[in-house]
Amino acid sequence: MASDNMKMRAQLKGDAASGGYTEVKVLMSHPMETGRKKDDFDRLIPAHFVQLVTATLNGKTVLEAQWGTGISKNPYLTFRLTGAKIGDTVAVTWHDNLGETATQNIIVT
């Protein structure tokens, strides 16, 4: 799947010494179908949703999220990291129930 289906930003807010943190914002492109919705011809649209999202900081896992069908279409996620520095790499990967997956990297600014 194309890597442009995820938009990411990782910004350091204040410095780590004074209780600063890095805020990571992620916007994914995904239909998040529940499997309960019907199309125009009254046929059920099969479930298609992200089940697992993992985030790493310089290769180390920082966040592991399991999702159900209740996350909104085109999922939005913000999380915060302490101890990240400018130039560090944050990577986010998702896997859905149909075996599709996408990964995106971003440098902390």
Partner: peptide
């Protein structure tokens, strides 16, 4: 009261703050 109540389960490690923003149905 959702058809399937569990929306999300987040696990934090290695300096991730217990903080999250997302959008739900």
């Amino acid at each position: 009261k959702n058809p399937t109540p569990l929306i999300a389960h987040f696990k934090f490690s290695n300096g991730a703050e217990p903080f999250v923003v997302t959008r739900i149905k």
